[in-house]
Amino acid sequence: MNRSTLSRPAVIALVTLRLLMAVFFVGAAINKWQQSYITSDRLQRIFLERIEEIDPESFGAWFLEHVGIPHYQPFAWLVCWGETFIGLGLLFGFMTRGAAVGAMLMMLSFAMGGYYDASLIVLTLMFLPLVWWPAGHHAGLDAIWHRRYPQSILFR
């Protein structure tokens, strides 16, 4: 379904969803930067606290123990920059579909990495409309960049 087939209420709902998710991700990113994830061992301490709260026989516990805790720095970079780029992409409607796919992958990674919760399923599914419909073509930069580069999949 392309832009022209969306009704006005659908466009309003889609853009509202995009902006709400943007606020969610930008807020999460600000929180990470304020807590100096990249320059401190904050994430490692969070992982060490988390591993006490989850089933020792779960994949999440194995992952935290063998991957997350010893190699926390790359994850700190991924989380900080990932949340920042996804939040800004959704906020400005720039590479929106890519940002939404990135958000879904990030949710999936959180779930697999010891932070699984049933609400994550719902949260992940809430990004599907932003992947399916061109949410960045309405009140977003994708509309401009798509006109300039109509062949590029980044701005569709």
């Binding site: 060490l48 709260e53 020792p56």
Partner: peptide
């Protein structure tokens, strides 16, 4: 408490917490 329960199970399994 859940934490204590997991700690008990960890000891049973012989898997101490990292560190």
């Amino acid at each position: 408490p859940r934490r204590e329960g997991y700690a008990w199970v960890r000891e049973l399994l012989g898997r101490p917490l990292p560190g």
